[in-house]
Design a protein around this nucleic acid. Structure first.
Lengths: 122, 122
DNA sequence: GCACATAGTATCGAAAAGGATACTGTCAGG
DNA sequence: CCTGACAGTATCCTTTTCGATACTATGTGC
């Protein structure tokens, strides 16, 4: 089964011309998804760790985007039932397969936005 | 100067952690930009040719997105002062340099949305 | 008892994005 | 004369997105 339950908030509609591109875009739209995926590329992170890495995102948005990413099968959410609650997020195989896209994006950004971005690159 | 006038509708804000990725995203957000760029990858197109290739986009949106792409230096708009007006859109060098990103996106989409999209691929 | 940390929810409201529809002006075809 | 194609504008309205703020529950440290 290629697309089990896309959880797509944006309907793709008819999609008359070949547009797996559009389908893909519907999974990674939202202002933060790609950044989150990119951060997760280097390893599992906890909720507040992500928050600290992306200070501009609000708690609501982060929860939101993470839930959508989870629903789309791109990230895995693991809850440890401890008492200071602990939740870890990591990429699924599907999420990890986006790596070429993420890296291409990063490479283009570095090439087109100069060195100041490169210098800061975490 | 690496980024002359990004025409960015979305402010990037401080961008404290390395995020040329975010900068890049601000250029290609909007529901249609990537699809437009993708279509343009195979050559120059006129306004209504693009419309026909992406039937779901409205005239207003198409104008809009094309203008933003032009402002960001990704596409070139050439007006021929003829009397059935003729306007051609093509990728700039900068736009063309996005090719790896677009192809990575397409490849991922094809791999993750099954064969029906591949079959239709223009 | 109070504050802090964790990982969130809930609610409100502003702003932006996107869609529908109608209109422009000129020329060619019938 | 009427219609259609071209490449848009202009206007209005709905939907979606995003942000701010306040709140939950639990345990630890002071």
């Amino acid at each position: 089964m290629p697309s089990p339950s896309p959880a797509s908030r944006r309907k793709t509609g008819g999609c008359p011309t070949g547009c797996s591109v559009e389908d893909t875009l519907s999974l990674i739209d939202g202002k933060w998804k790609i950044v989150i995926l990119y951060k997760l590329l280097r390893g599992t992170l906890r909720f507040n760790e992500i928050r600290r890495q992306i200070p501009a995102v609000t708690q609501r948005m982060l929860t939101n985007q993470l839930r959508e990413l989870e629903a789309d099968g791109l990230v895995i959410r693991t809850v440890y039932p401890e008492v200071p609650p602990r939740v870890e997020y990591s990429l699924s195989a599907k999420g990890r397969s986006l790596e070429p896209v993420l890296l291409a994006l990063k490479a283009w950004g570095d090439a087109n936005f100069g060195a100041q971005a490169q210098a800061r690159a975490a």
